[in-house]
């Protein structure tokens, strides 16, 4: 039981802090709002862990959507984690030629224990195919760690990339999201006394889900 608890909380940390689900792949219509909840499920040992966050997004133009979010799992552990950013269409979809969007923003963390603060800018690209209510995407994203030098024993890394592929059903007021994500494939992820399934010996991985309403 204790072991489950251990990997549950540290596993929650992995998803809560090292990678959050992709919120918006295809920019919303101008003036449209989207409010959603997301659940990351990184694989730890043989199980998956539910990690929950919420976000709101608004289409500020036909090609740009702003978003902001909060991770409840981090809150539970004593860290305030807020994120904000923008998704912008770079290349509109043309038939079978995928559209490309660019996302950029940041993640802010603050410890409620000693008020330690970290900020991680993030950026990424999404290739998407949209047909009616169906959206399929492949995404590459990276967090930038400007305080990598604060990691103990010089073990910090400037980039924390992730790669994902997903499907979204955006039907009228409702959107369902599913993606599979490979986390941090540039370094080993360790959780004491737990096994983190990885890709070629590096990183972590797992499914992420989301549900949102559009209005």
């Amino acid at each position: 039981m204790m072991k489950i608890k251990l990997f549950a909380v540290l596993g929650a940390v992995i998803t809560a802090v090292s990678c959050t689900p992709t919120k918006v792949v295809v920019p919303l219509n101008e003036g449209q709002w989207q409010i959603g909840v997301t659940q990351g499920r990184p694989q730890i040992n043989e199980g998956y862990l539910p990690v929950i966050g919420a976000y709101a997004a608004k289409g500020v133009s036909a090609a740009k959507t702003n978003y902001g979010g909060i991770q409840f799992s981090s809150l539970l552990l004593g860290a305030v984690q807020l994120e904000a950013g923008q998704v912008a269409t770079l290349i509109p979809q043309q038939g079978f030629k995928p559209g490309v969007s660019w996302s950029y923003g940041g993640q802010a963390f603050m410890s409620t224990r000693d008020y330690a603060f970290r900020f991680y800018p993030e950026t990424g690209f999404n290739a998407y195919w949209q047909k009616g209510p169906h959206i399929v995407n492949a995404s590459a994203n990276t967090w930038v760690d400007p305080t990598w030098f604060l990691a103990d024993f010089g073990r910090g890394q400037i980039l924390a990339p992730s790669f994902s592929a997903g499907y979204r059903l955006r039907y009228k007021w409702f959107e369902a999201q599913l993606e599979y994500k490979i986390l941090n494939p540039t370094r080993e992820i360790h959780i004491p006394q737990a096994y983190v399934p990885n890709t070629s010996g590096l990183g972590g991985r797992g499914f992420f889900y989301g549900m949102a309403i559009n209005f």
Partner: peptide
């Protein structure tokens, strides 16, 4: 082990201090 921070940083891949969780 080494430090509490290392456990946090090895679990996240980021320079987060352990005070975020403990």
């Amino acid at each position: 082990q080494s430090t509490a921070n290392v456990i946090m940083q090895n679990a996240t891949g980021l320079s987060l201090p352990a005070s975020m969780i403990t």
